[in-house]
Computed example of a mutant assay.
Amino acid sequence: MQLTKHRRRPRLELRLRHHPDNLHALYRESQDPVERARWHAIWLLATGHSIPQVAQILGYSTRWVRMVIQRYNRDQPLADLRHRNPGQPPLLTPELQEAFRQALLQPHPRDGLWTIRNAAQWLSERLGRPVDPRRAWAWMKRLGFAPLRPRPRHREGEPERQEGFKKTSSSSSSC
Rank of each mutant, 00 (worst) to 15 (best):
A46N: 13
F100P: 05
R38T: 10
P10L: 10
D111H: 15
S30A: 15
A138V: 00
P94H: 07
W39D: 13
L123A: 00
I69W: 04
S50F: 08
S30Q: 15
P10Q: 08
S61E: 06
R135M: 00
E160R: 08
T4M: 12
D21P: 02
Q88W: 02
M1H: 06
F165S: 11
G128K: 01
A136R: 00
A138G: 03
P159M: 02
T115F: 01
A136W: 00
W64H: 04
R82N: 14
Y72G: 08
P152N: 03
L92G: 12
R129E: 09
L123E: 01
S61F: 01
Q56G: 13
A138M: 03
A119W: 01
A99Y: 10
R84Y: 15
R149T: 11
G59I: 05
T93N: 12
S124R: 00
R84E: 12
E13Q: 12
F165I: 06
R17N: 08
K167A: 15
D32V: 10
I69R: 01
P77I: 03
P147F: 01
P94C: 08
R126F: 01
P152S: 01
P94T: 13
A146H: 14
R38M: 07
M67I: 05
G112V: 03
L78W: 00
P20W: 07
P147L: 02
R7P: 05
D32W: 04
A138W: 02
Q56H: 10
S169W: 07
R7E: 15
N118R: 03
T115K: 03
M1F: 07
A138H: 09
L105E: 15
P90T: 08
P150R: 04
P86A: 05
I69M: 13
W122F: 15
R155H: 07
G128S: 00
Q102R: 05
L26H: 05
T168S: 11
R82L: 13
E29H: 13
E98H: 14
M1Y: 08
L44M: 13
T4F: 13
L3Y: 04
R9A: 14
P90G: 09
P10D: 07
R63M: 09
D132H: 00
E29C: 12
I57S: 09
P10G: 03
E158T: 11
R82M: 10
